[in-house]
Design a protein around this nucleic acid. Structure first.
Lengths: 141, 141
DNA sequence: CAACAACTATTGACGATAACAATTATTGCT
DNA sequence: AGCAATAATTGTTATCGTCAATAGTTGTTG
């Protein structure tokens, strides 16, 4: 009979849960959760995005995006602007406060990851990262 | 500004979600979900376990274990037996049907994992697996 | 040995998540 | 002009994770 952790997919599932929990406890005091953080990070790379792009690239349901952007607007970290060419769409952009928040939490986020990957040396972390990225390429952003 | 997937912890979180979804859709027709499957797999390795052991080793709340074992009993995949030395405890054991179910879903589960890890060659999958295991050692079962 | 603290399983409650269906406003097609 | 498709939104439902409270049992210790 196979062992409990014989399966890589199951391992990923369990570690993903743990990673998410760590991130959330770290973000807790900032008033945002992991999903908000993901949106902010995406906005930072994209210099503005339609909500449907956020949905597609982050893998969250469109209805989830609505609430997340609502929260980010309340916090002053992002804004909705009308899309010039399509009145159905709204463009979500990072505010200056949002940028500052990202800068402030950046190295704290790295600390969380360091904590999680404690058993691995730097070379191994690099290997892990590139392998995960290769898997993620296909389907996620 | 760092890219969206610059962070390994975040990557783990996203891939863990996807892995869990894949497993769940595959298990769906069997009437069990991922958490039930995890319990079954643990029971298979342990030849019976107290519920508090399931809780501690799988990381689920004791109150969650109750419902999961209830479901597994209804399906005929597991049974609760009195612990001989402590009348507070119950020992959960796999039934023959439970074992058969595990055998039947075993290679189907591997197919799911194969699907997920499609971008990697066998050697890379092996590397990924051992790296993830090293991380998991510390804290999970 | 009697009182009390600790433990096991259970129930119940609550907020957070995730997945879907349905709606409204707008656009593109033909 | 009519109709299918699309973007954002609302609402619903099921699951999840955590926490508090309870009943029954065990262990401790004063």
């Amino acid at each position: 009979m196979r062992g409990l952790h014989a399966d890589t997919g199951y391992l990923l599932y369990r570690l993903g849960l743990r990673s998410g929990q760590l991130f959330n406890t770290f973000l807790q005091e900032s008033g945002v959760r992991l999903r908000h953080y993901a949106v902010l990070r995406f906005l930072a790379t994209a210099e503005g995005a339609l909500q449907r792009e956020l949905s597609a690239r982050l893998g969250y349901d469109p209805s989830a995006i609505v609430g997340l952007v609502d929260d980010l607007e309340k916090l002053g970290f992002a804004e909705r602007r009308p899309a010039p060419d399509d009145r159905r769409s709204r463009i979500v952009v990072l505010t200056e406060d949002g940028r500052a928040f990202l800068r402030g939490t950046d190295e704290a986020g790295l600390r969380v990851t360091n904590d999680l990957l404690a058993p691995l040396d730097p070379a191994e972390r690099e290997t892990l990262h590139t392998l995960l990225r290769r898997i993620a390429e296909d389907g996620l952003t």
